[in-house]
């Protein structure tokens, strides 16, 4: 049940383009017995249909830049291969630690940008 509610929340954030899948991994690791790599894999599988739905909705609002995406995809694929190989090679705890550091960085960035925007309004 906690997984289901968390998924709805993650979906909302994904749909808003903020990378909600990233919430799913700590949720799964802390509240279920999923391994780090399993949680990441699940998160990957999760993001395909949810992004597809969100993208379809945004496509109808004419927000997609297809030409730009076509140029970028070959490069993201070149990056994904070594990244995924490294992930399956690293030990679960090191991977979890790296993931945590990345989360702290992202969280810090969100909070920082909040301060900036808030300050700019005054």
């Amino acid at each position: 049940m906690i997984v289901f509610i968390g998924s709805i929340l993650a979906g909302v954030i994904t749909g808003m383009g903020m990378g909600g899948g990233i919430l799913l991994v700590p949720l799964l690791v802390f509240f279920t017995d999923t391994s780090q790599l399993g949680a990441q894999g699940l998160c990957l599988a999760f993001s395909i249909p949810t992004s597809a739905l969100a993208a379809w909705s945004l496509y109808r609002q004419k927000k997609l830049e297809i030409a730009c995406a076509k140029k970028l995809v070959p490069w993201t694929l070149c990056g994904a291969l070594p990244g995924a190989l490294l992930a399956s090679w690293l030990s679960s705890s090191v991977l979890q630690g790296l993931f945590g550091v990345f989360l702290v960085f992202l969280g810090g960035r969100e909070v920082y940008s909040f301060w900036q925007k808030k300050g700019g309004k005054k």
Partner: peptide, 13 residues
């Protein structure tokens, strides 16, 4: 593009 793919592959999201 490149780091996007690398992060996606390494951390799954």
């Amino acid at each position: 593009g490149l780091p996007t793919g690398f992060i996606n592959g390494l951390l799954g999201s």
